[in-house]
Design a protein around this nucleic acid. Structure first.
Length: 653
DNA sequence: GTCGAAAATCTTTTT
DNA sequence: GATTTTCGAC
């Protein structure tokens, strides 16, 4: 490659290791980058560097953990260099797969307009099959739909069968393995027949497409000549196979990750994968970045200490040059509500000191851990946005509306048709089945014969439904108009079904219409919502008020890759964090430790660790608070952490 | 066949 | 403590 005239002074703006990674052009490269070591910066500069070296942006593929992360990186690269960078292809493995499969669906036995099922859709479908097979009536209890969903998903992500997942993780169901495999087989067949794909299928079928169609593989491989993967420690087997298939023509893969931040094993990721990178891509160059640019020394000492008790030895120890800073503060409050009030007061205090709400975050292990805090924040009038936990699109009334759209667009979509038909008064599961069978056969509700329902009292509802369907299915109908028409039909049902609390829920429906404004076609609207579900607390907000100050509440998982000036970690009680769910499994317990490590390394200047002293035993069915007391998280009681690495303060509120 | 009420079940993290 | 499944009355 001829040396181009570069507009960015890379040597000045990057450290030695970052520079080494950025300047690497051809061949596999593994970058082990610790928390806060400028991982994103390295990726952004490398995009710019490649583009400056006359590599077309369209030939670069940037795979990240969320689509938001990809967009943010491309935005930064564009600011750094110029608009060329925004032509880089990027997104999550799932959204990328969707994009490809939409084009090549016919090569793997699907039709182009396939529907993507979200988790609960797929569970509903599993349940239909389960019920149909009469398995729920057996004397030994058969696993429920969510457990089955888990098992199937793990099997897909680990490239194995359900039986081996049962053996390892669900021994109590092992004797049902045969039946479970049959359910799985029928689940797979049904999806294929009805043109449906769940999240895992997007990956499964992309892999299949690449494996079985050398021509397509070569075409894609030569299009995406430079592949960059972020958060590689959280990719699983199927994703790494896809990566290596895509790279089969050139081997230009750059993977960035940190083994000590691996927190997604529940979806088949294994931090050891990152160590397999060099054997998957022979001739790999490895660069390690240990310099931290984010946190003060006392925060780093604590995080280094937390991870040092891990049973696995990780590849690096972080250093920082940021001088000064106070030790992380450890606060023990009386109960959960005092914890909430403490956080509120501290937040207001920090704001007084000039820290914007945008630079503060409250992190916790599970979505519901912030319930009490949310109430308190509302009382204090502190605006917040919550990430993680239940999604907006998971609320049942929102799912209803989406089910109308999905059903109209795909006459074979049994789950959606069942859902919406049963909403009509007088139609139960039997009638829904008959009607859906007819709709599937005729290829749309518009075409079914009137005599099927003409004598019934739901005749007029069916007629209305037909009209709604034909409006939505009109090619020229925009997403927002489709949503509004569905809402007109749904309103009456909505008020009947949610008669106790529909006024509260009504806002969500308006929000849905607002969200739909951004899309032109209904299909685009639907898949976007499934591939990138909207957080509950932001559904109603528009882009404009992004500039307002707002506090972030987030699960640790959703906080991955982000950073704030001041960070609070809540509920540091054994059983909450770590979750009592992992008490039996040493490996999962290790992941909880990494999770706390990820949480604590988000902080730049202030880190508050909060532990409520007493948790209401009624809420803790799982046995960690039998005596009405609660122990501090085991990760903090190790070694001399509480004595030497934090400063204890009183809650004082 | 439908639909409300009582009983059983399990509590996490995400695309 | 809330959701989901099953049961039994209409």
């Amino acid at each position: 490659m001829s040396p181009a005239k570069l507009s960015i002074d890379y040597e000045k703006e990057l450290n030695e290791q970052q520079l080494e990674a950025v300047r690497h052009i051809d061949g596999p490269l593994l970058v082990i980058a610790g928390a806060g070591s400028g991982k994103t910066r390295t990726l952004v500069y490398r995009v710019a560097f490649l583009v400056e070296n006359r590599i077309k942006a369209q030939n670069i593929l940037l795979l990240t953990f969320t689509r938001k992360a990809a967009q943010e990186m491309l935005r930064r690269a564009s600011t750094l260099l110029d608009e060329r960078c925004s032509d880089v292809a990027g997104g999550t493995y799932h959204s990328f797969s969707y994009l490809i499969l939409r084009k090549y669906a016919d090569k793997i036995g699907f039709k182009r307009g396939f529907t993507v099922l979200d988790r609960s859709d797929s569970e509903d479908l599993i349940n239909l099959i389960r019920a149909d097979m009469g398995l729920s009536l057996k004397e030994t209890r058969f696993p429920r739909k969510d457990t089955l969903g888990d098992i199937f998903s793990k099997a897909a992500n680990c490239l194995t069968d359900a039986t081996s997942i049962l053996e390892k993780q669900y021994p109590q169901f092992f004797h049902l393995a045969e039946d479970i495999e049959v359910v799985r087989k029928r689940y797979e067949e049904t999806k294929k027949d009805d043109n449906l794909m769940d999240y895992d299928d997007l990956l499964v079928y992309l892999k299949e497409l690449l494996e079985k169609n050398p021509g397509t593989r070569e075409r894609l491989s030569s299009l995406y000549r430079y592949i960059m993967v972020d958060e590689y420690q959280d990719t699983n087997k199927i994703q790494s196979s896809i990566t290596s298939l895509l790279a089969s023509g050139h081997g230009n893969v750059m993977a960035v990750g940190d083994d000590s931040q691996s927190i997604y094993s529940f979806r088949g990721a294994n931090f050891k994968n990152i160590m397999d990178f060099p054997s998957l891509f022979p001739g790999s160059k490895i660069v390690t970045i240990e310099k931290n640019y984010r946190s003060t020394a006392p925060i780093l000492s604590l995080t280094n200490e937390i991870i040092s008790f891990a049973s696995e030895k990780y590849s690096k120890k972080l250093r920082t040059d940021i001088k000064g800073g106070r030790k992380p503060l450890f606060v023990e409050t009386q109960d959960e509500n005092e914890q909430s009030r403490f956080v509120c007061y501290k937040i207001l205090e920090l704001r007084e000191e000039g820290v914007s709400l945008n630079n503060m975050a409250v992190l916790f292990r599970a979505g519901w851990h912030s319930n009490d805090l949310e109430l308190e924040l509302r009382k204090f009038g502190v605006p917040f946005r919550k990430f993680g936990g239940i999604k907006f699109t998971e609320a049942s009334h929102v799912k209803d509306v989406l089910a109308y759209l999905k059903a109209f667009k795909n006459p074979r979509d049994a789950v959606s048709w069942f859902r919406i038909l049963k909403l009509i008064e007088g139609i139960g599961s039997k009638t829904a089945q008959t009607l859906h069978a007819e709709i599937g056969r005729k290829g749309g509700i518009e075409k079914i014969e009137k005599r099927l329902y003409s004598s019934k009292n739901y005749r007029s509802d069916m007629e209305e439904l037909k009209k709604t369907a034909s409006f939505v299915n009109d090619e020229t109908t925009r997403a927002s108009d489709a949503v509004r028409t569905v809402l007109d039909f749904y309103r009456e049902i909505f008020m009947r079904v949610y008669s106790e609390d529909y006024p509260k829920r009504a806002n969500d429906l308006d929000s849905l219409a607002v969200v739909a404004e951004r899309y032109s076609s209904v299909e685009e609207f639907l898949t976007d919502l499934t591939l990138e579900p909207i957080e509950k607390s932001q559904a109603g907000t528009t882009r404009e008020n992004d500039e307002d100050e707002i506090l972030t509440l987030s699960t640790v998982h959703s906080a991955k890759g982000l950073e704030w000036h001041s960070v609070f970690i809540l509920q540091l009680v054994d059983g909450y964090f770590p979750s009592s769910y992992c008490f039996e499994e040493p490996e999962e317990m290790e992941e909880e430790r990494r999770l706390l490590y990820v949480a604590a390394t988000r902080a730049k200047r202030n880190l508050y660790l909060v532990k409520p002293g007493y948790l209401n035993p009624a809420r803790n069915y799982f046995g960690f608070s039998y005596y009405g007391t609660s122990q501090v998280s085991r990760f903090l009681s190790e070694g001399r952490i509480l004595q030497d690495f934090v400063e204890r303060i009183s809650a004082d509120v």
